[in-house]
């Protein structure tokens, strides 16, 4: 190399601003973890017998109380399925108009868009179990409260994602249809729908998959489904029944995953 006479050129990977931003985040993370570790209330005595307790737990679970399945689990399982499915359908019905309201290319009014976003965030911030508490207070214990909490909890998820899909729709086909003087319903059905249909089904399936899991626990607060049976078994300390119910939930969740991935590959 020939020596260059230019003054020492400095090179830095990040601008000062980027470096500061990263450092601040790293430091904040450390502070948060240290603060949490130091102040959180953990009772060490409980930890000593944790392995024992865990072993005891599994010992009591096995063998499962198989006779409990036809007695109470089966019907509760079907109810869980209904809650998840109806809840998802209701969520889609409620979320669709809101997603049009949230999509920039449909709604020009920023206040309306902001309102839709606010509904989405509220829906997603509050957990399904907490929504269930509220709906049990309104409709009383049972599956209706479950369906409502699943639906309300899912509005944010479905609405946000479907609204984004609408915003991403290509202008070309829409303009071509508008140019032919097609009515608005026609533009929706032939211009938008074919473009967003894959997204629609994938969102619906994804949420249904999640809702099967969620609806399995709603019964803990009285909102119907297999959680009711789980709650009863837990309160009675019938661990062999608890074990059976957990195994059933595991099987259903796995089955749902297989079904949704099959449907996804068929539809999309």
């Amino acid at each position: 190399m020939t020596g260059t006479a230019t003054p020492t050129r400095r090179w830095e990977r990040f601008t000062a601003q980027e470096r500061i931003a990263r450092s601040v985040l790293y430091i904040l993370t450390v502070i948060a973890v240290v603060w949490s570790l130091r102040t959180i209330d953990i009772i060490p005595e409980f930890l000593y017998d944790a392995p024992e307790q865990t072993a005891d737990l599994f010992k009591r679970m096995w063998p499962f109380d198989w006779a409990f399945y036809p007695k109470a689990v089966h019907s509760a399982l079907i109810e869980t399925f209904h809650i998840a499915t109806l809840g998802t359908i209701l969520a889609i019905l409620l979320a669709l108009p809101l997603s049009f309201m949230a999509a920039r290319n449909f709604t020009r009014n920023p206040v309306l868009r902001w309102l839709a976003q606010f509904i989405f965030v509220s829906s997603r911030s509050v957990n399904s179990l907490i929504w269930a508490l509220i709906f049990v207070a309104i409709f009383g214990p049972g599956a209706l409260a479950g369906v409502m909490s699943i639906a309300v909890r899912s509005i944010g998820f479905v609405g946000k994602l479907f609204g984004e899909a609408l915003e991403e729709a290509q202008r070309g086909p829409l303009e071509a249809l508008t140019a032919t003087g097609a009515p608005r319903s026609m533009i929706l059905a032939k211009g938008y729908w074919p473009q967003v249909e894959p997204a629609f089904w994938s969102i619906a399936l994804l949420r249904w998959d999640i809702n099967i899991r969620e609806s399995a626990v709603l019964g803990l607060v009285g909102a119907g489904g297999i959680g009711v049976a789980l709650d009863a078994a837990l309160n009675n300390l019938y661990w062999d029944q608890v074990g059976l119910i957990l195994a059933v939930i595991f099987a259903v969740v796995i089955a749902t995953e297989i079904v949704t991935s099959f449907l996804r590959s068929r539809i999309l």
Partner: peptide
């Protein structure tokens, strides 16, 4: 940390010129 020796950085700048990209 991307703290390469100064002479490496110098040489890298020269090379950017040498391969016709520029600094």
């Amino acid at each position: 940390l991307r703290k390469f020796p100064t002479e490496d950085v110098e040489r890298a700048f020269d090379l950017l010129d040498a391969v016709g990209l520029g600094q």
